[in-house]
Structures are given as structure tokens and as C-alpha cells.
Simulated assay, not measured.
Amino acid sequence: MEHTATPAHRAEAWRSRAEPLEATYPGIGSIVDQPVFAPISRRELMTAVNIAAPDLGLKPSTVLIVDALLSCLPCRSSAGAEIPVSPTMLLTIYAANNTLCFRAKGVTERQLRRHIQILEEAGLLTRRDSANGKRFPIMRGGKVVGAFGLDLSPLLVRHREIQELARLRTQAQEELRGLKAQILKLGAACQALQLTDASKQFVESLRKVTRRARLTITEAKHLLERLLSLAGHSPAPVENPQSDPRDQNSSETNSPTAKPRTDVAPRPTKPAHTTASDGRNVRHKKTEEPDPKKAIHPPDPRAWTSLTTISALYPTEPTTSREAAAIAYDLGQMLRVSRDFTTEAIATHGLHHVLKAMDRLATRAEGISAPRAYLRHLLTHADMR
């Protein structure tokens, strides 16, 4: 008697062949039981885990264990190329502790067990323990179909959530970096104002506060608002606190409503011929001979106000080259440029060109990751000459 194999019979036969694996090895990590998720490369996943580690409650040492576990996944094609992690590959790691410790830069087995427990408590890992606690693969037809070990399915299922956490943290870090730059710039400008002792102490402590690793965006915004209130309500610095009586007399004389004064004696006129010293004690200094090894740059006649950013931070125009160099060194520290590089740049390109390049760098400081290289480019560029 012949029996016809209907689709229902074939499905029943398939189920009967698949059931023994589940019934014989309960609780193992197998491909058929893994959840479905979008494929992702190990590099992208590790980048997101590194950035979002504080939000996941992971320390850098625990992130190193995650990297070691991901390195055990079969993410190589037959040609040796890197392929993304997908649900079609076994996500249960059955490598021994020695292997994992070696790939985790030499941590001890005790540290490894502690970090695995942290990952399990964070919901990023599931234990698939055998009866004796050992990790080993389950083979069928010469292929690995399951394993007892550490299942990374929870980590892979949450990879979109982790990437979103990393994106939000990156945005927050960029916003905080911009707020810190504004605080430092406005704080430097407030130092030239007439402030109370408490306000002056607050402005001087800004550099130390902005270096705190746990400074939040809310705290940075509060500092910026307080600086803006100081800058808006504080009087501008007095350039010449001591007035000259002769200037007052001159202004009264030039006024259209001023009356002629009779109580002021006429000033004696100077003789046509004066002595070499003109009545002053002149101290003659020996002229220094120029060093042929150093480049000599004549003083630039352009006004201090042409350096818009620097003149806003330092309203008082320097009267000597020493004062201008001190401003260049101070601004270089604010822009993360070393003192040695600033000295070399001044000796090579001249003080004015260095200040002009720093002025342009200060206007774009928030978006420049390598200020020293950018400053070197500005100094060697033709437009800076």
C-alpha cells in the first residue's frame, strides 16, 4: 500500500527531526532559538558601546571584555573578509577563560568572572551553562549548531538602542564643548571689567570649573548666564583713570559756550632753538646688533582693532612688543597651543602675523580639533602675509 507525502506529513516529519535537539540539550544557545535583529558590524557595535558605556553602567575594563567576546564571533567569510553580525551565525561564545583573558589584554580569571556578572546584570549577556559549568560547542553533521557558553543575543538585540544612546551622548559632548569655549572666551573678556571681589573670584575659577569631567550642560548654561549678566551690568574698564587738567582746560576752551578765562596766566613760549636733551635726562643705550640667524620683522602699522576677536578679549591695546607677546602666549594657552610652538612661530613669522593667525583661529576654535596644525597652516598660507 502506497502512502502519499502531503505537505502536512512533510511538516510533521521536519518537526520530528528538529525536536530531539531541543529535548536532548535544554537551555543551550542555538541558531534556531536566536532572536531576529538587523545585521551590524562589530566595529560599529563596539564604537557605540564605547560611547554609551556610562549610560549602560559599564566601566572601560568591562567594555574591554565586550570587545574580547565579540572577537570570538565567526565574522569572517570564506575569502577572509569581515562580515556583519547577523542572526544566522551562532552568538553563543564557548571560548575558554584563558582565551578570553588573553584577548582582554591579560585580565585575570577572577576579573573576567566579575565583568561577565556585570554584563549579565546589565542585560547584555545570558549564561548558557552546562551541567559541569564548562563551555563547549554542540556539533551536528560536522557543523556547530549550538553551544554552552555566553550568549550575546541580548547585546545584539539592543544594538539600535545603544547606537541611539551613543548619538545622544555625542551631541551632548559637542554642545558641552561649545559652552565651555564660550565660557572661557567671555570669562577672559570679563577680567578687564570692574568687578566686585566675589565676581572676580568667580571669573578666575572658571578655567578650573570647565576642566571638571563631570560638568553637565545645565551647569555650563548656568555659568554662561551668570557671565552674561556680569558683562551686561559691569562698567567698562577705565583707560585713563587720572585726568589731565590741561585736557579739561582744552575742552572748556573749545566749547562753543565757553567764556574766556582771565585767571590763567599765559604759557611761556619755547625758544626756537632747543638743546639736544630738550631739558630731559636722556639715558643713552647701546644699540643692539641684529642677529643674522633670526628673521627681523618691522612693526606693523595696522590698528589693534583689526584683530576683532583678540581686541574683544583684550580691549587695552598693548603699547610694547612685550605686552603683545604676553597676550599671544596667554591666548595660545586658551587655544591649546603650547608655549614652545608660540615662541617658535613668533621668531619665524613675526609677532603681528602670529596674532593675526590666532585671531582667525579663535573665531573657529569650537570646530577645530587640531589647533596647532591649523595655526601652522594659517601662518604658512599666502593670505596671512
Rank of each mutant, 00 (worst) to 15 (best):
E2P: 04
H3F: 13
A8D: 05
A8R: 10
W14M: 09
W14I: 03
R17N: 08
E19K: 15
T24H: 09
Y25K: 05
P26A: 13
I28S: 03
I31V: 15
V32Y: 00
Q34R: 14
A38I: 03
I40L: 09
S41V: 03
T47E: 15
A48D: 14
P54Y: 03
G57N: 06
V63D: 05
V63L: 06
V63S: 07
I65E: 08
D67W: 01
L69A: 01
C72N: 08
S78A: 11
A81C: 01
E82I: 08
P84V: 04
P87A: 10
T92N: 01
T92H: 02
L100D: 10
R103H: 13
R103M: 14
E109D: 09
Q111C: 13
H115M: 01
I118F: 05
I118S: 13
R127L: 14
D129T: 15
S130H: 08
N132P: 00
K143I: 09
L155V: 12
H159F: 11
E161K: 07
E174A: 15
R177L: 07
Q182H: 15
Q182F: 10
T196P: 09
A198Y: 07
S199E: 15
F202G: 11
L206T: 06
K208I: 12
V209F: 12
V209G: 01
E219G: 05
L227N: 09
P237W: 09
E239H: 14
N240Y: 14
P245V: 00
P256I: 06
K259C: 13
S277C: 00
R280W: 02
V282T: 00
R283L: 04
R283C: 00
K285N: 04
K285A: 07
K285D: 07
P290M: 11
K294T: 12
A295G: 02
I296H: 11
A303E: 03
W304R: 08
S306E: 05
L307D: 07
P315E: 02
T316H: 08
T316E: 11
T316N: 04
E317H: 12
P318I: 04
T320P: 13
R322A: 12
L331K: 06
I346S: 09
V354K: 08
A365Q: 13
E366G: 11
G367H: 12
I368S: 05
A373N: 12
L379P: 05
T380P: 00
H381E: 06
A382L: 10
D383E: 13
